[in-house]
Design a protein around this nucleic acid. Structure first.
Lengths: 352, 352
DNA sequence: TTGAAAGCGCTAACAC
DNA sequence: GTGTTAGCGCTTTCAA
C-alpha cells in the first residue's frame, strides 16, 4: 500500500476503480472535452467519481491548459458604488460558471492598474474585464497594449465595460446619449444657463459625457460652462465651489453620482437649496440615491447588468461561442426624482 | 533547435544559461527557499534571470506546493460601503506581497457563502478572510467547520474580521464598546427614551452591538426598545417605521450606517427633523456620511485597517511568523456630527 | 553547496 | 472508443 499522504481522490483513483485509463476518465469528467466515450463507460466513470467524491484539481488543470478558471475585474475604486455594483454583477455571473473573480482596485492610479495587469497576466487568469474607462495617454495605452498582448498570447480574453481606445469586445453604456438626456431634461424645464461638472479630463468616459452635454447645449445655441471634478465626492464639492465663483447658472449636470453628492453638500453648506434655487442631475443611479434629500435625479446605467454581461462575454469568448457585434451598447434612462425643477427666475438673478 | 512554442523563459532556461541545475536556480529565485547557495552562484543566477526577464509560473508552483498565491475575502455584500472599504484595505495589502485577492460576495445569503467556501477550498487558495460575522445556526456552523477543516488540510489559513463562534485568528472591532459609546453619548445629551435598530438577529455582530446598548441603558435603569433591520438601508427604513408605531422615544441608536441612512429617510418622509425632534447615531462611519444632511454622528470602525490587518495576519500565518494573541481588538471611536442633539422636551411629548 | 531524479494531477498527441 | 506516453514548470527528496 504505497498510499499517497493525502486522502483526496485523484483522477487516477477514479480511473483505476472504473477500470479505464486516466485519459478516458478525464474525457468523461472534463466538461470541456469533446471526445466521444461509450455511454456505458461514461456512466461507470461518473458513478465511481461520485462515490469517491472526486473533484478535479484546478491547479493541475491550470498548469496543463495554461489557464486559470478565474476572471479578473479591474476597477478604478471598489468603494465607488458604481464599481461595487459592477463587481457584484460580474461575480455572481462568474460563480454560476464555476469561475472565481479576482477584484483589482487601482484607486484611480494608472500605475497601480498597470501593476495589477502585470500580476494578472503572470498568473494567467482566463479573462480580464476592464470596468473603468481608459486614459488618453500614449505611455499608458502602450503599456496596456503590451499586457493585453501577453494575456492574449496564452489564450486569455479581454473585455471592456467602458470606452477604451483599444478595440476590444465591449459592453458599454451610452454615455453621450445619457448626457444629452440629462441636459435636455434641464433644458425642457426651462433652464438656459446649465453648467457641467465633468470627470477627469484624460478619461474617455468623461469626454463622452461632456460631448453629450455640449451637443445638447449647442443645439439650443447655449454656452457651456465646465468645471472638472475627479469622479469623487470631494472632487464634486470642489468643482461646485469653483463654478459658484462665477454664478449665473441655474442648473448643473454632474457627470457621475459620486460628484453629485459632493456638489449637493457644497450647495447645502452655502445655503443654496435644491431644486428651488439650483437644479442638479447626476449620472449612474448608484443605489441609495432615493434615500437622499432631495432624492437625486439622474441617468440610470444598468451597472450590475454591465458586470454580468462582461463576465458572460468573457466566458463566451473563452469557449469560442461569442457571436454578434464586438461592441454592445446598453441603454440608459432618465430617472426624475426631486433634485430638478423649473428655474426660479428671481433667485437665479440674485448673486449667489 | 527544438524550441518550445512559447517565448517566455522558464526556470530551466535560466539554469542552463547560468550553468547551474534547475534546483539551484530555484533555490536562488524562490523567495521561500532557505537553502544556502554560494554568493557568486546566486549573483550569476539573479543576473541571468533578470536579463531573460524570467518570471516564475505561479501555476506550476501552485501545483507543486499545493497552494495558490491568492487570498480570498468573503463579504456579505460588496456594495455595502463597510465591506467595500474592508476589501480595499485587504487587496492593497495583498498585492504588496504579490498576492491576488478573490472577492466573494454572498448577498447576505448563507448558502451562497457556503458555495463560495466550497469553490475556494477546491481551488486551494492560500488564505480565506471572513469579513462578515457568523450566523448563530447549528447547520451553518457545522458546514463552515467542514470547509474550514478542508482548507486547513492543505495548509490554507483562516482569519475572521467579525465575531464567529469558531475560535479563529481574528482582527475584530469592539462592537460592544462602540455600542455603549453611542448609547452613552445619547444619554449624556439627556435622552432617556432611546430605541435601537438592530441588525439580523442570528448574526453575532448584531448581538454584540445590542449588548452594548442594553448594558448602557441598564446602568441607568432605562428600558430598551428594539426593532430589527437587516443591516440594509431598506431594513433600516422599515425598522424606523416600526418603532414610530409606538412613539415616545427621542433618540435611536442604529446598529450600522446603512440602516441609519434608511432610518433617516423614513424620518424625513414623515417630516420628523433630525436632530431637533429625533437624534440618530449610526455605527461604522462609512465614507460619505459627512456629505449627508444632517451629517451622521456615528461610531468609527477602522474598516480599511481591518482589511489590511486581516491580510497581514493571513500572510503571517502562512509564513509561520504570526506571533501574539489569537484575537486582536481594533478600537472604535465616537464621531460626533450633526444628527444628535439634546432632546426637545416639548417635541418628544407630542405624538409623532 | 550543488545536482539528479522524481513527481504534483491533469490533459494532449498519437496510436490502436 | 480507448489507451499509452509524455510532459506542463516547478520544488523536493536524496545523494554527493
Amino acid at each position: 500500500m504505497a498510499a499517497r499522504k493525502t486522502l483526496v481522490p485523484i483522477l487516477s483513483d477514479v480511473a483505476r476503480r472504473a477500470k479505464v485509463s486516466s485519459t478516458t476518465a478525464s474525457r468523461v469528467l472534463n466538461p470541456d472535452s469533446q471526445h466521444p466515450v461509450k455511454d456505458a463507460t461514461r456512466q461507470r466513470v461518473i458513478r465511481v467519481a461520485a462515490s469517491l467524491g472526486y473533484r478535479p484539481n484546478p491547479m493541475a488543470r491550470a498548469l496543463r491548459t495554461r489557464q486559470q478558471p478565474t476572471i479578473a475585474i479591474l476597477v478604478h475604486d471598489v468603494t465607488d458604488l458604481y464599481f461595487a455594483e459592477i463587481v457584484r454583477g460580474a461575480t455572481i455571473a462568474a460563480s454560476r460558471s464555476g469561475f472565481l473573480t479576482i477584484v483589482c482596485s487601482s484607486s484611480r492610479d494608472p500605475d497601480t492598474e498597470l501593476q495589477y495587469l502585470e500580476m494578472l497576466s503572470r498568473s494567467r487568469v482566463a479573462g480580464v474585464i476592464f470596468a473603468g474607462g481608459g486614459l488618453e495617454d500614449e505611455a499608458y495605452k502602450r503599456a496596456v497594449r503590451v499586457h493585453a498582448a501577453n494575456i492574449r498570447s496564452y489564450g486569455g480574453v479581454l473585455v471592456a465595460l467602458a470606452p477604451r481606445a483599444d478595440r476590444w469586445p465591449s459592453e458599454l453604456s451610452d454615455n453621450e446619449g445619457g448626457a444629452r438626456l440629462a441636459t435636455e431634461h434641464l433644458l425642457e424645464l426651462g433652464h438656459r444657463e446649465i453648467a457641467l461638472i465633468s470627470g477627469p479630463i484624460k478619461l474617455r468616459t468623461s469626454y463622452e459625457r461632456e460631448q453629450g452635454y455640449r451637443a445638447a447645449l449647442t443645439k439650443h445655441g447655449l454656452k457651456p460652462q465646465v468645471a472638472v471634478g475627479e469622479f469623487t465626492r470631494q472632487g464634486g464639492a470642489r468643482a461646485m465651489a469653483e463654478l459658484l465663483a462665477k454664478p449665473g447658472f441655474t442648473a448643473v449636470f454632474v457627470a457621475n453620482d459620486a460628484m453629485a453628492l459632493g456638489a449637493l453638500s457644497e450647495l447645502r453648506r452655502r445655503g443654496i437649496t435644491v431644486p428651488s434655487q439650483m437644479s442638479l442631475v447626476g449620472f449612474d443611479d448608484v443605489p441609495g440615491l432615493d434615500y437622499l434629500h432631495p432624492a437625486l435625479t439622474t441617468i440610470r446605467v444598468p451597472m450590475a447588468e454591465l458586470g454580468a454581461s462582461g463576465t458572460a462575454r468573457a466566458l463566451a469568448l473563452l469557449s469560442g461561442t461569442d457571436k454578434g457585434p464586438r461592441v454592445r451598447m446598453h441603454s440608459v434612462e432618465l430617472v426624475i426624482r426631486e433634485s430638478t425643477a423649473v428655474p426660479s427666475q428671481a433667485l437665479s438673478l440674485v448673486a449667489l
